[in-house]
Amino acid sequence: MIRVREGDDEAFKELITRFHGRIHNFLKHMVGNEQTAEDLTQETFLRVHRARGRYRARCRFASWLFTIANNLALNRIRDNPSANLQPLPVTESGSLPMSHSTPRASVQEPVGKGMERAEVVAAVRAALDALNENQRAAIVLSKFEEMSYEEIGKILDLGPQAVKSLVNRARVRLKSHLLGVLDQIQSRPIEDMDEDLNE
């Protein structure tokens, strides 16, 4: 980012290459709309390029980038709520009808008793959409970006305790919305938790 600040276009290309997909996915999870996410991704990088002179090295670049993306997503949702959070189309396989979209869960993995993968995807999407914007951002940043509470706090401009409460409320609410799905799909062992408990 230091090189970008000094006008190095090759460095900016590297930066976009590295973060484009991550920002796009974050925004897609936030606004629930593929085209809006693409527009906002482009706008995010435009904002970064315009503001590159104001970037300070003490700030982690990813935090700065996701802060811009999150603010753009919030503005879009607040300005035009009806245009966002439209259910993403899912095929029977559960993936988007785009060649470059793939579910994180294994395609071969059995979903469960009489529940199609597409139904699970739709239910998870609906549960995520049911969260408020901050809760959704916290969940997405934690789950998909594997960010710590501290990093999430910087992006959402919240203190450590506020982030802890936010994530807790979000996870409990997510669980409540997905109880029906959890009852239907196969019980998946929680390896990490079991390993911890057996220590």
Binding site: L96, R104, V124, I139
Partner: peptide, 8 residues
Amino acid sequence: LLDFLPVT
């Protein structure tokens, strides 16, 4: 279950 969401 969030892993079921498609990632672009």
